[in-house]
Amino acid sequence: MSAKTKLPTGQEAIRTKGWIGAHKYLLLRRISQAAFLLIFLIGPWFGLWLVKGNLAGSLTLDVLPLTDPLVLLQGIAAQYWPEFTALLGALIVGVTYALIGGRVYCSWVCPINPVTDGAHWLHEKLGMPKGWQPKRETRYWMLGMVFAASALTGTIAWEFVNPITMLQRGLVFGIGFAWTFVIAVFLFDLFVSRRGWCGHICPVGAFYDLLGAKSLLRVTAVDRAKCDDCMDCFAVCPEMHVITPALRGKGTDTPLILSGDCTNCGRCIDVCAQDVFQFTHRFDTRPSPGRGEEDATPSSAPCNRAA
């Protein structure tokens, strides 16, 4: 952990799996993020209206309504009961993320993610210090604050400042000065707080975190016995505390990463030269001995959300 004798992060994986293999999920994620942007843009750009609207609410192929459940809940906190279409849209989105992992939104859809990832990349390049690291729970306080502010002002309060919808709506409908919010997030992550926005502050992330607390799709450190302590997964994970209980667990501890904080970005899978990690479902009970134990005790079915 201290002596920097090892290769730079990810080099080992590139050697064993090739560049593509060591960036598979990263590439897929970038493609997904771009696709989610483009699908909203081909309408205004080319007049091809597969999807209308934006991330707060949309209509796909003129039949499928989707609504951001957090935005709608703020409206309800502000004492407005929406029409059926919006409720149905929020239900579809809510159930989907509850199944595939709430923070899949963060790593595969949210347009701010490339921004904060970029800030983190530069942060590392410049060898900047960690900076201010508020508790991870801060985002839940933020989420509570957002609902309180909505109730208090009778408005959908977070939408006045939400950099996510500002950016996405801005790109699709015209951005005005909303890019200043995006720059602010970038600078915050670069100079003030490493992984600060998505890891500690963003109430949207916190909401989807809670939403996906019991999700089916999970990453597992099933081959944890093979871990050679290169620490690359910790280096790339935006929520590195989620890895420890799974990777360092002993035979009876589940190898599943069960924390809702995990964004299912799959970067740990990419970067591990030993192929310790995989995507799986939360009821996967394959035996997974810890390091140094070769007796394969089946792990008990997991139910608790690891902190």
């Binding site: 209308k52 801005g170 951005i175 200043t180």
Partner: peptide, 20 residues
């Protein structure tokens, strides 16, 4: 919720979403 669906369906481009 500021989705802009009303804007999209206005045939005369009357409506716009406010820019910051």
């Amino acid at each position: 919720i500021r989705c802009g669906l009303c804007v999209r369906d206005c045939p005369y481009d009357t409506l716009v979403l406010a820019e910051l």
